[in-house]
Design a protein around this nucleic acid. Structure first.
Lengths: 249, 249
DNA sequence: CGCGCGTTTGATCGCACTCAACCCGCGTGG
DNA sequence: CCACGCGGGTTGAGTGCGATCAAACGCGCG
């Protein structure tokens, strides 16, 4: 029995609105979406490989990842999703799961039926465009990760990820002046960067020794954002922080 | 002055129709899109980083890549596009270029104005869905590349790419029973796999020695597809070769 | 108290990089 | 006709980044 949860949906709406211009009807359509709340433990699967799903997952709290896996058990995190992200929005048009979804930390997510999302996309072309555009942000992020993993040193990779996550957390108001809480373990970070946890640890040490960051538990403080961006050649343009009105009304 | 080129557009339509169900009107709308033909030399830029573009690029002939680049000049190919692919379809909703597009070999492409694509997407929700879904194929491919580059050995990476390209060329009827022409140089392949050309060459040698493939010039023949899939753990599911009718009419 | 997970550090290993040379085929120009 | 340059492919020798293996530590929790 679907519920409705305007609070959680407004975080998603905020993410969408950051990149697309919507009018009142369209906003109301999003906020009225039916929702089913779920709580998941750390390391618990949310959607499994090969399933055919009929709902998308919006992250309300916690940290969620999409995973690739080799038969020898090595994992590669394909994408990280923080609160406000619809981790699965692409599944609306691609319901056969080729990349599973798992909670990295205890998380609360809400499920939104595909039919409801398809209905408002069909009724409001600007919403369809906004959803499509939102998925393209993930694509742009993955392209940068590909560049990082393919061509950057371990230290630059880690610095790049920290720059990206700091900005993304800042967008949702979870990055104070110079620090943010990043609940991923060094194991998770290794899986995201194509490195081992041991080497991630050493690279954290290197960045600390360079005076660029400080780490206390899961709390990361950035002492020198310029420097961190410099070692990783970080350019935030790919995160596309500007609202476009692409739908000619 | 836009033209129309139903021949080239029908290759794109074929790609779309392989994954989405469209009706007669929707098909006609796609085939009636305005086009501007372009010829580009090998290694010539098609769209540059930072530009804001107002058209998408459909590959008619040749091989086209999207690139990431570090300041030291190292390149990472983010995606490869073969004839029938709209290399740039995502630019319809994401016109600020964060990943440049370049021809790897002499290619002919046709440009299609964003306004025309947006118009038919707004008029035909099923077309909007189909376009969105098409972009999600690219996303799924990039996810697999991320897994390959992050976690697989050089040999497995190469084998995986060959499996993927063989299937993609087969889809467009350019892969005879056991061989296909893959016009990328070993340098390009290295840029796609996050390897050096030298090492790509050695891995080609290894796959040849294993009796899995033969290479003559740019012609690749697959002697043992099972074996090639086995060493790379290739599972074609991510290419999503099945048409879904997602738009409830 | 003991256990488990995550972090930290050290020692050694090996895959892929780097540097370097040479081959071949092709197009260009003398 | 040959000389030459150039891009791409091939092979060898040596190097180094990040993996692997291993051990210990800190901390929260049952």
């Amino acid at each position: 029995m679907p519920d409705n949860n305007r609070g959680a949906l407004s975080a998603f709406l905020a993410r969408i609105s950051r990149r697309s211009v919507l009018d009142g009807d369209e906003i109301e359509a999003i906020l009225s979406l039916p929702t089913i709340e779920h709580r998941v433990r750390a390391n618990q699967d949310i959607v499994r490989l090969g399933e055919r799903i009929d709902h998308a997952c919006l992250v309300v709290e916690g940290l969620v990842g999409r995973f690739g896996q080799t038969s020898s058990g090595e994992r590669q995190i394909i994408a990280l999703h923080i609160p406000g992200d619809m981790a699965d929005l692409h599944s609306v048009v691609s319901p056969l799961v080729t990349v599973p979804l798992q909670a990295l930390t205890a998380s609360t997510i809400i499920r939104i039926p595909h039919v409801a999302l398809r209905k408002i996309a069909a009724r409001h072309p600007a919403v369809a465009t906004a959803f499509w555009r939102d998925c393209m942000i993930d694509l742009a992020i993955m392209a940068q990760w590909l560049l990082s993993i393919g061509r950057r040193s371990a230290k630059a990779r880690l610095a790049h990820l920290l720059c990206e996550m700091a900005l993304r957390y800042e967008q949702i108001g979870a990055c104070s002046s110079e620090g943010f809480l990043f609940p991923a373990t060094q194991n998770h970070i290794g899986d995201a960067l194509g490195l081992t946890a041991v080497h991630v640890n050493r690279m954290f040490g290197a960045l600390k020794r360079d005076g660029l960051i400080d780490v206390k538990g899961r709390e990361i403080t950035i002492n020198d954002g310029k420097g961190l961006a410099a070692v990783s050649e970080f350019d935030p343009a790919y995160l596309q922080f500007e609202a476009l009105d692409l739908h000619q009304r």
